[in-house]
Design a protein around this nucleic acid. Structure first.
Lengths: 369, 369
DNA sequence: GCACTTTGGCAACAGCGTTGCTTAAGTGGA
DNA sequence: TCCACTTAAGCAACGCTGTTGCCAAAGTGC
């Protein structure tokens, strides 16, 4: 109930209250997974009374979003009824448009993929062609569950864009997309509500909704270096969806020239080390950037991903962890920061794109969303 | 209504809804200042119906928090009644404990100081002595408005701490404060509810509530270098209130040794340049760090403050702005970032400390607060 | 002076979570 | 086997929220 106030419109009336509490309960059901959760646990976690939870879950059951799933062992009285989300009540489509390929995935309410399509893609081709290919993939995928509602289409793209109106800015190397209204164009072709976001934000959202606790940064090292930030439990996009520009942070004042025109950028240093086979140095550079980020934002975890990291996960995790721990030892000895890798290569990006659609169902809207 | 979900307890019932909407209206009244705002504008801004706003403002008027303040010019019908916050209905005390001095300020609901006290302070003295001095200052100040309620005491301290339980961690150079429960100790001695935060966060909060729009970073360059971040309209504190560790970001890999034990920290580079009289280089270094931050978080504005900046505001603003603009020109040409200075030296810190108490009244709670 | 516009309060209302109570469904000792 | 006890969950009444429909108040302008 906090966050930006600048645009206002934050007044809450009864329908909004009802929707909020229902989303809250749905989110807890989702987090509980197949094991389920009892009404009384829901009441305890939400701060609502058990009776209120009973009413809310009754509505969810009539809508087909929740069902009973057995009983808990008795603790001396009537056993608790366990409630569970019905994952295949609704679906969402995620679409990852990359420079050289397209991945589309149909996920259920629990975020699990039920159908996947991949296809080569020339992102430099005329917009009409790219849009047609994308719309075809989405249409094929939607047919996989013909009788269940598809809530919408989430799209992850590499370049800078405006998350609110879904208009692309100039994607590096593909000037023809500058100013292109991708959201509206795809909405028209697919007939679905469309949400667009950066690929790193989608990956971070997928990680956040997959149960990763606390605040974290997702660092993606592939052909470039970018970051997705989850702060206060929500994806931080910034005023212009530009947050996460990590690769061109200056890490070496007056250092070697980078392709962006700057000097001493993390991306340039890191990829140069990788190119000359010095993986330890690449990891150390990435670690220094990660440590900067950890200190600045006081996050709990750093998650590494991308093709370059996937090639030698251990080396990168060890190298990054070493730098962060060394710096933490010099500062306050407080909470330890976890360094892990995101498995699955680029798959999380497409799934995260689908989560752009599902997140609002569970009350998980980004700040300034 | 977004933000962290990990700790739950986010269920909203009718009293919570009422409180939220009342705080929302109060915040708009505060932002409108002495000019006031009409019921219909409030309705438009909140998304509530005019009748709901009428009910809410009627309650606020009976509580003495709002009053009518004249009429707007008619636009062809009955003129709108303007409502205005009653700033002296309630007060809050802000306390800034610095290494060598103490500043206490009594502010009204509008955040305006009505009484100020400064005193020398030896932060290295025994805790009992420091607490007694602080409590005395607070008591004297509260007496300035004897018949009006003082909502609480906000305290800003230099070192790392936990904002939630108000316990200090080891303040650099003052090991005796490590683990000291400052919040509870001061609450006992003053009889007021106490909120504790880092000095840079307090300054950032003061700037945010004083009407600075959008997201921004406050960079404080004095004896050290720190930052306060306002993201999504709220102060970002991070998991352990440690966010804003800016001075020891690595900006020059393997650069000169810093007092913290690291190499190439912004603070070391910046203060070294300042020490040898090269102010342009100091500003350039600060600008490089600021540009990193702007890119990472996609913020709208950078605010500079602190004694070192105050000594030559123009040089720092120009230097920082130059680096940010140069880097923006290389990236997407999007929204321009504003670079300004926070006037008033250290005064905003004490006022921001008081705002720690006032912020919840206006529904302005930090994430994970 | 009268028609019109706009503001804002009054009264009735729908719907939210809460409270008080009852029923359902177990455990465990006599 | 029975019965007292415990715990879970629904029913009914309720208080309070913002909303809706209506009307009085207070201006403008022909």
């Amino acid at each position: 109930m906090n966050g930006s106030r600048t645009k206002s419109q934050a007044g809450v009336n009864l329908p909004a209250l009802r929707h909020h509490n229902a989303a809250l309960v749905l989110d807890l059901l989702r987090a509980a997974g197949a094991e389920g959760i009892s009404r009384l646990e829901l009441a305890e976690r939400t701060g609502l009374t058990p009776q209120a939870v009973s009413k809310i879950t009754a509505r969810l059951r009539t809508e087909g979003l929740a069902v009973g799933a057995g009983l808990r062992p008795s603790t001396g009285g009537k056993p608790r009824t366990v409630l569970r989300l019905v994952p295949d009540a609704q679906f969402a489509v995620g679409l990852h448009l990359d420079r050289d390929g397209l991945t589309a995935v149909l996920v259920d309410l629990a975020g699990r993929p039920v159908a996947v399509t991949t296809a080569p893609l020339d992102f430099g081709a005329p917009a009409e062609q790219v849009l047609a290919d994308a719309a075809d993939a989405v249409r094929d995928l939607s047919a996989a569950e013909p009788h269940k509602p598809v809530l919408g289409l989430g799209v992850a793209v590499p370049g800078p864009l405006d998350h609110r109106d879904g208009v692309l800015h100039r994607v590096t190397g593909f000037p023809q997309w500058d100013g292109f209204p991708l959201r509206d164009a795809l909405a028209e072709r697919t007939g679905l509500p469309v949400t667009v976001d950066k690929d790193t934000n989608a990956a971070a959202l997928a990680l956040s909704l997959s149960g990763l606790p606390g605040d974290f940064a997702y660092l993606h090292l592939g052909t470039g270096l970018g970051a997705g930030l989850v702060l206060g439990g929500a994806v931080h996009r910034g005023a212009r969806t530009g947050a996460g520009e990590f690769g061109h942070q200056t890490l070496q004042l007056d250092g070697p020239l980078c392709g962006c025109g700057g000097r001493g950028c993390i991306e340039a240093l890191c990829l140069a080390a990788e190119a000359r086979g010095d993986r330890a140095e690449a990891a150390r550079v990435l670690g220094a950037g990660a440590a900067n980020l950890v200190g600045l934002l006081d996050i709990d975890r750093v998650v590494l991903g991308g093709r370059t990291v996937a090639a030698d996960e251990d080396a990168y995790v060890r190298g990054v962890r070493a730098v962060i721990e060394e710096r933490a030892a010099r500062g306050r000895g407080g909470g330890s920061v976890t360094v892990t890798v995101a498995g699955g290569g680029d798959r999380p990006v497409a799934e995260g794109a689908a989560q752009l659609v599902l997140a609002p169902v569970f009350g998980r809207v980004g700040e300034r969303g």
